[in-house]
Structure formats: C-alpha cells, structure tokens
Design a protein around this nucleic acid. Structure first.
Lengths: 135, 135
DNA sequence: AATATAATAATAACAATTACTATTATGTCG
DNA sequence: CGACATAATAGTAATTGTTATTATTATATT
C-alpha cells in the first residue's frame, strides 16, 4: 500500500532522533535542511500517515499547537505553560484507570490522555520572560 | 476593571444550566435566541474572559473542537470518539499525582489534564453510524 | 524498459480564532 | 441627576493551522 519516499524517511529519522516533541513548523524547518523544497502539505500528510501507522504519536492538548513524538512507548508528558516545552514523565502508565472508569460509568473506555502542566526548570525562576518559545 | 454586559450574563447563564459541554457554535446559536445580533467575536472574547476569571473551564483535547464547561468543580471527562459527546466522570481528582510528579521530576507542576476516550452508550453498539455529532 | 499508481510540490480552500475599528453601553464622580 | 472616560460591542477583516486539489514526479512491479 504505502510506498517509501525520502521525505517520509527523513521525517521519521528526524522524529526518532529528537526528544523535544517538536511542532509541525520545527519539523518542516528541520526537513528542509535536507530537502529544501519539501512542501508543508507533505509534512502534514506524512505526519498523519505515520500517526495512522502507529509510528509516531500526536500530542494535541489544551489548545496549544500540536506536537509530535517519535517515542511510541506509552508515557505521559509535562507541558510548560510559559515556553511551551514538552518533557517526558517517567513512570508507569495506569492501565487500570480505564477499567475502573468503564466499570463505574458503563462507557466503553479505550484509553486516556494525561498531561501535566506548570513551569519547567528554565521558566520556574523567571516567570516573566518568554525564552525558548519553541522547545 | 471588568464591566457587566447582557451578552456576558446570558453566556454564563446558558453555560451554568447545561451539562452538555457545548462547543462555541452551540453557545453562539443559543445566545442568539436571546440576543439575535450578538457577534461571534463577542462569544470568543467573553469565553476567554470567563475562563480567565475562573468562571468556566475550557476543554480542548486531542485536536477536537474546543468545548466549554460551566461546572468549575475539578473533575475529569470522557469523550466519545464517534459522536464527540463529552460526559463528566464521577470520582476524585487525584491531587497527589501532581505532587509525586513534581518530586520525581523537579518540575513545578501546577496541575494536570486527564481525559478518557472511547465509545459512549449510544455509539458503542453501532460504531458505524455518526448520530448526534454535536452533543 | 513499460506501466500503474502512490507520493509530491505548489497552491487554493477551509475552519477556528483573533485583531481592528467605529459605535454603544456601563460605571463613576462631580 | 448628567457629563465623562473607557470597557464592551457588532461587524468585518486578517491570521493561523490544517486539509483538499491538481498536475507532475518517483516508486515498485511486471
């Protein structure tokens, strides 16, 4: 079905080697260093394909711009409300939660999203500044 | 600072008396029954004001259109991935979670968002249909 | 190599939200 | 009360993030 392309391969490679949970724009800029005339539409199409194949994870929470994660192991995230940075949270994903909610509510629960928010190390001390808006 | 207006009062009243976690468009339509020439910009501006004042809660998860909740008691939600309906989940909000994550990570954790997803009662049996897209 | 078609680049279209601006409403203070 | 300062509004334009369209190019298969 799905054919390979150097655009798709470059995107996946870039997503695999970063842990910064990049935005669409960041990915676009990064791929353009290899493939200068790549189209933004291709970025969006391939992100959706890779997501559908389960190769990457989409992080779209709380109205903030969507981020992508090349790490497919289930894990939670922290988002800095000052600079937007997204970090991984160590620790177990709670699978029992879904079961408990399903039993209590009668809903067919397939999963949950959990995101922590607050100030990251860089922003905690200086809540006024707005450094690193894209990390 | 903030002055009253019949538009703002109508919006808050409407949000207080529903439990359907309405979308911007639903709120717009509903307020227009009272104030037919209200502007959509006013809806957005007042939603942001009411949110900033802590009078309402914004639910924007997973790329789906933003919903608003006039119930400010901390609680979790379930979203049907078929029809988009949002329901409240009974049960305690886990405040210790934030503390544990903060201790483990060194981040200044202010809170977390948790949303369950799956099929609601109406959509569980007939996953093909797409009834009630706006509830 | 010839062929079928998936993927692409470039652009247009779209939907959700915000910004702008002239006008109207609200609260204050003499 | 009635004038005044200004917050809020309606209407519109602009912006942003994303998807659709289309002619062209690249990939895989025979």
């Amino acid at each position: 079905m799905s054919r390979s392309s150097k655009q798709k391969e470059a995107m996946l490679r870039i997503l695999r080697r970063t842990t910064s949970h990049p935005s669409v724009d960041w990915i676009y800029e990064e791929v353009r260093r290899e493939i200068p005339n790549i189209s933004l539409g291709t970025i969006y199409r391939n992100l959706n394909m890779l997501k559908a194949e389960g190769a990457i994870i989409e992080l779209s929470f709380g109205g903030a711009p969507t981020r992508y994660d090349g790490n497919c192991q289930p894990h939670y995230h922290f988002r800095c409300i000052k600079c937007g940075r997204v970090c991984d949270i160590d620790g177990q994903v709670n699978g029992d939660l879904d079961k408990r909610v399903a039993e209590d509510s009668g809903l067919e629960v397939l999963g949950h999203r959990l995101e922590f928010y607050g100030f990251c190390q860089d922003c905690g001390g200086c809540k006024e500044s707005n450094a690193h808006p894209d990390r």
